[in-house]
Each structure stands twice: as C-alpha cells, then as structure tokens.
C-alpha cells in the first residue's frame, strides 16, 4: 500500500476523483481483491451498491482524505449533517463535491 502525499494546492475536480480512485482501491484492496479497474470508478459510482462498501468503510476513506488534504477536510463532520440513507446511498461525486468545497478558495 503506497502512502498518500499531503497536498497544499487546491485540487481540480478530476484530480480529486483520481485521488479518490486511489483511496477506494486501497480500501477495496483490504477485501482481498485488486481487480476493480480504477477507470470504472466515476462520479456516478455508488459507494455501497457499486463498490460493495459499507458505512464503516467511510471511516477509512475519511482518514485517507484527512491525510491527503489536511484535517480541515473532515468527512466525519460532513457526514454528521447527512441522513443515514444519504450516507449509505453515497455517490462518489458527492465525495468529490465535499473535498472540492473544503479545499477550494
């Protein structure tokens, strides 16, 4: 598993998606399979239904996001504002929205 380098510049949407692909691949990898093709993950990919991830996996994603972008990208605080249904039905695009919003100027 590679480490994720901290970033200081405000990332573009595509760059965030690309980062997320890498993070999701790492989270998915713990389930013993590394055959999800990263290009398959788009903004429309569903966290649960498509990737088979559970809300508890968001913990890992949240930690990776904070590591990459800094503690101010606080997924936990963001999720606290959502209903559980929204968390479960999480679309990757919404994660991108969140990161862009927190890292933008």
């Amino acid at each position: 598993m590679s480490t994720i380098q901290p970033q200081t510049m405000a990332p573009t949407r595509d760059a965030v998606l690309d980062d997320l692909r890498g993070m999701l691949a790492m989270v998915l990898d713990q389930y013993g399979a590394d055959v999800v093709e990263l290009s398959e993950i788009t903004e429309d990919t569903l966290f649960h239904d498509d990737l088979g991830l559970e809300s508890i996996d968001l913990v890992a994603v949240g930690a990776l996001l904070a590591e990459r972008y800094g503690e101010h990208v606080n997924l936990a605080a963001h999720l606290a504002e959502l209903d559980l249904d929204e968390v479960i039905g999480m679309r990757i695009g919404l994660l991108v929205d969140f990161v862009v919003a927190r890292t933008g100027h």
Binding site: S55, L58, G62, E71, L75, A76, A77, A80
Partner: peptide, 10 residues
C-alpha cells in the same frame, strides 16, 4: 470532540 478530530460519529 471526536467529530472535530475527523471521527465519524452517530
């Protein structure tokens, strides 16, 4: 406290 430290809580 924990949310501020990026811990998901419910």
């Amino acid at each position: 406290l924990l949310r501020a430290k990026n811990v998901i809580c419910q």
